[in-house]
Amino acid sequence: MAGLVSAQMVLASGPNFPTINDFLPPEILFQGTPFALNRIVLIRLIMTVVILLVLGITTMRAKLIPGRWQGAVEWMLGFVRNNIVYEVMGERRGKRYVPMITTMFMTIFLFNLCEVIPGANIAATATIAMPLVFAFWTFFQYWIAAAREQGLGKYLRHELIPKGVPLPVLIIVLPMQLLDVLVVRPVSLMVRLFANMLAGYFILELCLAAAQYFLVNVTDKLMMPLGGFMLIAALVMTLFESFVAALQAFIFATLSTVYINLSYPEEA
């Protein structure tokens, strides 16, 4: 009977589960000014400073024979250059975009990784602002590439009017193609990154909240195995979200490179 009463109390109070309000935190610095910062914006700024410091210090201390740290940084830079940019665009085209795609990949990866870093506990890309910025960056770059390499008129004819499509079908295809170029590409980039990091945050925080509640807040020992299970699930999710952080950065960088490459004429 005591165990039943305890279980009812657990269900009545419940763990402190995450809510959408976690993504609308109060301002903690410069309140009431145009420069007001909340927790998520502060995490972005701190991580940006960390990225710049790491790359700056690594560059200043670079040696001809790299050590482990320099080797790891150079491996990441080489991975983006060779396995994303050059793999999609080739070396001749890709050289122009290596700095952009490398910046995009490293920033998204480390911003995503904030979700599992103690003290941050939320991905800096889990709100719509940062995915939107990166998506628009890609959007502007493939339009600039199209205007420079083949002219906007020729690019639009190529994209909107596929070869061999009959006129009656073209009436349907043309608006769909225009929607793809103007809306679907940037929105798909934005939503994919945002939705994955948002969902990952909720799942991980649900596991952690349940684990804390059943192991710390509940005195009934019958609930402890459930708490232990949720703790193991949280640890597994932490490792999985670390993988997702890298995977989403890779997908975003690769698709951005593909979209920019599509702006070049086929014969180039």
Rank of each mutant, 00 (worst) to 15 (best):
N83V: 02
N83G: 11
I84E: 00
V85Q: 00
E87L: 07
E87S: 06
E87H: 03
V88G: 00
G90N: 02
G90T: 06
R93C: 07
R93H: 07
R93D: 10
G94S: 05
G94H: 04
K95M: 08
R96S: 07
Y97T: 12
Y97W: 14
Y97P: 05
V98C: 11
P99K: 00
P99E: 07
P99V: 01
M100F: 11
M100C: 10
M100N: 08
I101Q: 01
T102V: 08
T103L: 11
T103N: 12
M104N: 08
M104H: 09
F105K: 03
F105I: 07
M106R: 00
M106Q: 02
M106C: 09
T107M: 14
I108T: 10
I108C: 08
I108F: 02
L110E: 01
L110V: 10
L110I: 12
F111R: 09
N112W: 08
L113I: 09
C114N: 10
V116M: 11
V116T: 14
I117L: 15
I117S: 10
G119D: 14
G119T: 15
A120Y: 11
A120V: 05
A120E: 09
N121Q: 15
I122S: 13
I122E: 12
A123P: 12
A124L: 15
A124W: 13
A124V: 14
T125E: 03
A126E: 10
A126W: 14
T127C: 11
I128C: 04
I128S: 12
I128G: 05
A129R: 07
M130S: 08
M130E: 00
V133C: 15
V133E: 12
A135F: 14
F136V: 11
W137Q: 14
W137C: 13
T138S: 15
T138E: 15
F139T: 09
F140R: 13
Q141H: 12
Q141K: 07
W143Y: 10
W143V: 04
I144T: 11
A145P: 02
A146K: 05
A146C: 03
A147I: 03
A147S: 03
A147C: 01
R148M: 07
R148A: 15
E149Q: 05
E149W: 02
Q150D: 01
Q150M: 14
Q150L: 06
G151Y: 06
L152N: 02
G153S: 05
K154H: 07
Y155K: 09
Y155H: 04
L156K: 06
L156Q: 08
R157A: 07
R157Y: 08
H158N: 09
E159M: 08
E159C: 04
E159S: 13
K163G: 06
V165D: 07
V165H: 01
P168S: 07
V169M: 13
V169F: 11
V169Y: 02
V169S: 09
I172H: 01
I172M: 04
I172N: 01
V173G: 07
V173W: 04
P175V: 15
M176P: 03
M176E: 04
Q177A: 13
Q177L: 06
Q177W: 06
Q177I: 05
Q177R: 15
L178S: 10
L179F: 15
